[in-house]
């Protein structure tokens, strides 16, 4: 059924994403909520327009396999009395079986698009797992290209080329649409966006929140820190969505900082096709999806927007009244201050 038919009153929220048609622009992004079929089903039931699964981390699979091998073989064959310390598991599989099962089961359990996510490390990892994900029934695949370029021998172009190469390889390996979760720190995000779309990506997600560890001053140790995003973090994606809107053929998604319908609205106005939310759902539960879409509907109704398509990009660089605000913010502020009534 056409999702637009489900609402006979109010604006049309239907929006395209990677060639898929979503009933509205609010997508449940990867979080602990979607690690189980039950969780995915709850999100869909609560109204998510699509659900994105947590990433399958190739490195984690390798790490797990190596850790399993190390821990299960520690102390083995060292003593006449104990050649091993665990029962034997001949069928033990450290591969992506669980993840693929989650895709299969979740796909069967929900009626909205299911988007898988992949973080590879090797060429074969990217393409092989992408194929398996497609085979398992995912409607689309998000590439979570993630890696800190800490190697001084790696120059900027090499980092960029690696992104492009991955996208090319994956998109040539599978038929389902592919999005790329972008890194905000490229020297020329616009060029990278072009290159990624040209390489075969159907859309871009702005942005990947990079892991940033913290320091424990008591123990004097570096500690992992993963904090939920806050609305103040929407500025960076908001800026680049506004710039990208109308200048790329790919779909655009906003990620990060969606707490209320205000952020959803802002992202759409900047140019996003869809808006992804994680932190708010973790804070408030899956039912919060309804709050977001209701808020969007209410705002659109108040403002007289009839469809998401109509409002999309309305405040982008291309369509905003004061486009220079995007690119000369600090300078403008200074001038404005200078021109204040005292002059």
């Amino acid at each position: 059924m056409d999702p637009s038919m489900t609402r006979n009153i109010g604006p049309n929220l239907v929006t395209p994403w990677l060639g898929l048609s979503l009933k509205h622009p609010v997508v449940a992004s990867a979080s602990p909520l979607c690690q189980t079929v039950t969780g995915v089903a709850q999100l869909a039931k609560a109204g998510a327009a699509a659900v994105i699964l947590p990433s399958l981390f190739e490195e984690q699979l390798h790490h797990d396999a190596a850790a399993f091998e190390f821990l299960s073989s520690a102390g083995c064959d060292s003593s006449a009395e104990s050649s091993s310390y665990f029962p034997s598991f001949p069928e033990f599989d450290r591969g992506p079986t669980d993840y693929l099962k989650l895709i299969r089961d979740a796909r069967a359990a929900i009626d909205v698009p299911l988007i898988a996510s992949l973080n590879g490390t090797t060429d074969s990892g990217w393409t092989d797992y992408a194929r398996e994900i497609e085979k398992a029934g995912a409607d689309a695949l998000e590439l979570n290209v993630y890696g800190l370029p800490v190697d001084e021998d790696q120059n900027a172009r090499m980092v960029e080329d690696r992104y492009v190469s991955i996208v090319k390889q994956v998109t040539q390996s599978i038929r389902i649409p592919v999005s790329v979760k972008m890194n905000p720190y490229f020297s020329s995000p616009m060029e990278m966006a072009d290159r990624l779309i040209e390489a075969g990506a159907s859309g871009l997600v702005l942005f990947n929140r990079f892991y940033q560890p913290d320091f424990d001053l008591e123990k004097m140790e570096v500690v992992p820190s993963l904090q939920l995003s806050s609305p103040s973090e929407i500025r960076l994606p908001l800026l680049w969505l506004s710039v990208l809107f109308g200048r790329t053929s790919g779909s655009l998604a906003a990620s990060t900082g969606v707490e209320t319908s205000s952020e959803v609205i802002k992202y759409l106005l900047a140019g996003a096709d869809v808006v992804m939310t994680t932190s708010a759902l973790l804070r408030h539960g899956p039912e919060h999806l309804r709050t977001l879409t209701d808020g969007l509907t209410q705002w659109m109704t108040q403002r007289g927007y009839e469809s998401v398509g109509q409002m999309r990009g309305a405040m982008s660089l291309r369509n905003a009244r004061n486009p220079s605000a995007f690119v000369r913010a600090n300078y403008m502020k200074t001038l404005a201050s200078y021109q204040h009534p005292f002059v």
Partner: peptide, 22 residues
């Protein structure tokens, strides 16, 4: 039972996999 290679005892916690509690 560490010495004989990791068989479960009544001290083995719930949920732990051990020999004899495969």
């Amino acid at each position: 039972y560490s010495n004989t290679g990791g068989q479960a005892s009544k001290a083995t916690p719930r949920g732990a996999v051990a020999k004899f509690a495969a």
